[in-house]
Design a protein around this nucleic acid. Sequence first.
DNA 1: TTGTAGGCGTTATCAA
DNA 2: TTGATAACGCCTACAA
Lengths: 342, 342
Amino acid sequence: MMKRITIKDVAYKAGVSTAAVSYVLNGKEGKVSETTLIKIQKAMSDLNYIPDFSARSLASNKSNLIGVVIPQTEDQDQLLLENPFYSDLVCGIESQLRLKDYHMILSGVDKGKGYLDLSMQRNLDGAIIMGIYKEGFYDELKKVDIPIVLVDSYINDDYFKKIGIDDELGGKIATEHLIECGHTNIALVTGVIRKDGVIEKRYSGYKQALKDANLFYNPDHVFEGSVAYDYGVETGRLIAKAHPEITAVFATSDMVALGVINGLSEFGKSVPEDISVVGFDDISFTKMFMPHLTTVSQNITERGVFAAKLLVDAIEDRLDETKSNYVLSIELIKRDSVKIIR
Amino acid sequence: MMKRITIKDVAYKAGVSTAAVSYVLNGKEGKVSETTLIKIQKAMSDLNYIPDFSARSLASNKSNLIGVVIPQTEDQDQLLLENPFYSDLVCGIESQLRLKDYHMILSGVDKGKGYLDLSMQRNLDGAIIMGIYKEGFYDELKKVDIPIVLVDSYINDDYFKKIGIDDELGGKIATEHLIECGHTNIALVTGVIRKDGVIEKRYSGYKQALKDANLFYNPDHVFEGSVAYDYGVETGRLIAKAHPEITAVFATSDMVALGVINGLSEFGKSVPEDISVVGFDDISFTKMFMPHLTTVSQNITERGVFAAKLLVDAIEDRLDETKSNYVLSIELIKRDSVKIIR
DNA sequence: TTGTAGGCGTTATCAA
DNA sequence: TTGATAACGCCTACAA
């Protein structure tokens, strides 16, 4: 192991005190004279000095570490990174954090255990949490007292910065589009509708659109299971077999939409000829899938970037304290999975 | 912020010295008596003690942090996490690391900059590097003197632990399968063939299979560009338009294979009826794609788990020092994208 | 088996 | 504008 170059070595070489070095390290301009600044900078680069963040964190309580939490599979074993929605988000977050000189600890959260441990152990400067968790989880989070950005959560608590989209509107425009195209029997295929979750809002939007169009809301046409691909397949089959009246499907995630399409096709139903499908998310994968999916786009990577930027701003104290909800725009992208039937 | 509980508080509450607490913290059994052990444990849980890893890292040079590096997009901006191959791998790594009480810093590496900085700053205990980088990168890595696991690299240096598959064999069995099915004009669609990379080996396997079957190797049938989806589309179109003689394609990644299939279909060619395709990787996506892709499976998530396990073993010094290459098994998964033509 | 105390690399306070 | 020096929380000889 190469001997570690410390602030002392730099100070010695530059002929100044460690305090001076620390000042320039932390960009405390004005604390040192031009000449010493230059001496120190030279010494640092000559010696190839690399600061030790552990020491810095110990002394200053600032770690430049951000915790990023994403949901896990049911068995709490694997991260849901295979879901392109989350991986896109993480990409955005990472690129922005790196830009701002932060590092990211990506992890799931163990069942039972909370996130308190990790945040305290590592002196996290902040955290980005995706998905929704049980109540106690958030209470714990508050105890740590660091800035936290919640992605896709309708938790009603101004302590947290929340970034999301207007999910209700999303559900509404997706459904409206189908209605405009002449569909009246529109199924909803969705994940579990839980309080404070995005799904609940999309569901509301769906119902609202039906109501606005004076269409009958049929609970039998709501298929509530999961937003994963497999549930889509299952439901697609079911619709093909048992619901000839259904001519369109609004799926609350692209993944489940793709599943529906494949499930339908197993029974000879094709999209959009026989049944129209609208998805939600606009994951990068959809471009590879035939037919190209009409979907509600939410610019996922950009959201990751935004979340990271917001968090860093909060950490570095240049944020409007009062604002806690940030809503990004969405857009219906019309592609080839919807047929006009009148 | 809740006042931090330190080792001192615990010691005081348990009526022992801080040293004793530190001993039990580090599982130095035998250093403390049964009774003090119990007292300390009680004090720890009563006070809800959470150790500070920064301090620990500073004092002991052990951070329980692992660096994980994955390749980035060309512009060095975003991680390639949208590539399910990497996200699956990361899932495997994370789950295993969490199990062993390590955390993961996931990052790309900035152009120009090396990885030395991050590893030194954070006192990384080890690193997992995916993909291949330029020579200097590895030299730097060695300077840090921590265990390193390389995924998918044929770098010839025993300093690093390498985990991979027999890519040459993979290329061979994929091609052989096509040959067995009667194909003689088999195109190769692949990423850039670079030294010490996996692609080079798969390419060798391809050539070897042709040779073994006394088939003519036609350089015009090698399409070398990238392993990304878009290049596949492009090449699929090209083959459809300009290469009627080609009846089969071996694509060196599933992503590019899917691209080829879609590119072909744009010109009315369907798989496997008109052209057969074999992929490589067996990413989780393939199950959603029609036709189901015949591919060389490499059990990606498990590889991630294995890489993490290997690294932790190396860090904790229970590894056979002499062994530096670990080769995991692969398997040809026959699905629906290959047609028997004789 | 237990406790004391110095040190890890940095920041920050306070004098100079 | 500088420089000693005491924290920060933990580990680990060394001594008791």
